[in-house]
Write a protein that binds this DNA or RNA. Structure first.
Lengths: 203, 203
DNA sequence: GCCCAATCTGTCAGCTACTGTCAATATAGG
DNA sequence: CCTATATTGACAGTAGCTGACAGATTGGGC
């Protein structure tokens, strides 16, 4: 009924999910996303195609599912910012969650190639942009709540929070683009900082 | 070999394409995108499914293909802006192309429902965002060319043009979102103006 | 108006992503 | 240890999409 310890069942499920994702990612990086069949992935982890689809709703989700976990972290990060902080600054700090994830040691080797697969595969890029869009919806809701709580609510038809959020996420994507285009040489954090410095809220 | 008058062949092709798109759009609005089969569309226009795919590469393109035509217009609009105009202003004016298209009389009745279908169907929203992304690539290239021609080129690793463009397009999507959320009551042009007024380039 | 090459079309066969169903198996948790 | 529940593979089926081919249609030069 309520929250309990994850439970063994749940834990094995996540473990299998991770195993599939890792095997699939390796294949995607090696042969490309479209050239890799779900049957290939199933064979690689030794299960039936049907079972792969029991862990991931779609082939895309094998790659993009990772980002769902980040959404919660990002929202938590947003809620943790002081209520009177400038919105643009809060958004910038929220992106630190993504940055630190990209720079986390261990799977550093895979982050950039997968990133590249996402940006170079039309279906994946589209799915990724859509996930960012959903994330923006959640962020906008949070920003409105925050303004309400601060006693300075936005008018219902005020596009400000959504426009600010969209602009910030636009900068994020621009940063990822620049970063990949430069061969992922500099730090990702710098790329984000630089992109977000070029634009800002109007006085 | 070179550019001639459209030619009858080409014109009939475009006519058939338009006929398919209109029949399909009606079905999409009526039953929804996913619930409508390509066979349904083929039956509606009295041809085989195979032939429908000869006019549109994918089912999504039947809806989203329209936007490809706009891209060229928008790029032309960008090139028509004075070279020394502020980038943000140029981008704002480029969006007028979209606005005037949405407000063009004749098919006004369909613009809003289709818009709604796009924003409410995950696959279509994803595809739409991806098209906007491609459009941004073209715009960024154009902005760099313009800066080069003006003798004030951007450094190759300067994220400014891309970030500005991404922020502007973010505002565009935010405007569409607000407009739809308000039941498409006010003018779309106002929605765009308001969204773009909340953000701007940093000094 | 005639003719031919280019284009269009339907049909069929096939691939891949994805889903429903069901019976068999495994196992968490009492 | 036992059973309710979750997990699985096997099979069948649908929808989107593609290649191949043969036949009908037709634009446009003659």
């Amino acid at each position: 009924m309520s929250e309990r310890t994850p439970g063994l069942r749940e834990r094995t499920r996540l473990a299998v999910q991770k195993e599939i994702a890792e095997a699939a990612d390796a294949l995607f990086v090696e042969r490309g996303f479209e050239a890799t069949t779900v049957d290939d992935i199933a064979a690689a982890v030794g299960m039936s195609q049907r079972s792969v689809f029991r862990y991931f709703a779609t082939k895309e989700e094998i790659v993009l599912g990772k980002f769902d976990l980040v959404v919660d972290d990002m929202l938590a990060a947003l809620r943790a910012r002081p209520a009177d902080e400038a919105v643009w600054t809060s958004l910038h700090r929220v992106f630190d969650v993504l940055v630190s994830l990209a720079e986390k040691p261990g799977h550093e080797e895979m982050v950039e190639p997968i990133h590249r697969v996402v940006f170079e595969t039309p279906a994946l890029l589209a799915g990724y942009l859509q996930k960012l869009q959903h994330m923006q919806d959640a962020v906008v809701t949070e920003l409105r709540d925050r303004a309400d709580a601060a006693g300075t609510p936005y008018a219902v038809d005020d596009p400000t929070p959504r426009a600010l959020t969209a602009a910030a996420f636009g900068c994020l994507v621009a940063a990822q683009h620049s970063w990949l285009a430069s061969g992922a040489k500099g730090s990702f954090a710098d790329a984000v900082d630089r992109a977000m410095a070029t634009v800002g809220p109007r006085p």
